[in-house]
């Protein structure tokens, strides 16, 4: 079976899973559905010959599921009706479908699937192992050629986690302050 059929199958599962995740009422089912979508992304990365990304996506998906389940299970106060008014939802869906068809010609101008534009990365592929000594070329790009990107990325992760910790700690303090009243 050619790789396109496998990928179309995987993407179909992802589309189905994301629609289920958005429309189902039970919140645990929605989180499980989003987990299925993430694991399908991991499988698609394996089909596309990216084992690095497949491992990272798999592990981060598991961790995101743990965070979401830990945070949201047992809280009953969801919105009574999940969506906005049906007429507006229909109008939004109509606009997005029109958007889809308007942007279809853009994808026709891209290079076809399976023939990438190798210009910079051909240098990485041919000279990377000699210049950095790493067998994993993705690691040599992430941590040597483009280590500056990685530094920015670590900074963003640091800031995001710091923001989360600050918000959560703030809420705990206000709770403690409220209790004596």
């Amino acid at each position: 079976m050619p790789i396109e059929s496998w990928l179309i199958y995987t993407l179909g599962i992802m589309l189905l899973g994301s629609i289920v995740a958005l429309e189902i009422r039970d919140i645990l089912s929605a989180i499980i559905a989003i987990g299925i979508v993430g694991l399908a992304v991991s499988a698609a990365f394996l089909f596309l010959q990216a084992p690095d990304l497949a491992i990272v996506q798999f592990l981060f998906e598991i961790f995101a599921l743990v965070i979401l389940v830990r945070a949201f299970i047992g809280k009953k106060a969801h919105a009574d009706t999940l969506s906005i008014h049906k007429v507006y939802a229909f109008l939004v869906a109509l606009a997005l479908v029109a958007f889809f068809f308007l942007f279809t010609p853009v994808f026709r101008s891209l290079p076809p699937f399976g023939e990438p534009l190798l210009t910079t990365s051909s240098h990485y592929l041919t000279h990377g192992p000699q210049e950095t000594g790493a067998a994993n070329i993705v690691a040599s790009i992430v941590l040597d050629y483009r280590a500056y990107d990685t530094m920015g990325e670590v900074t963003v992760l640091f800031t995001a986690i710091l923001g989360a910790l600050t918000v959560l700690r703030m809420s705990r303090q206000t709770q403690k302050g409220r209790e004596p009243k």
Binding site: L48, A50, D52, L53, Y124, L157
Partner: peptide, 14 residues
Amino acid sequence: VDPLPQALVLTSIV
């Protein structure tokens, strides 16, 4: 395969 998009996506996932 082209390793450059994989390196970019690796940071994007994190």
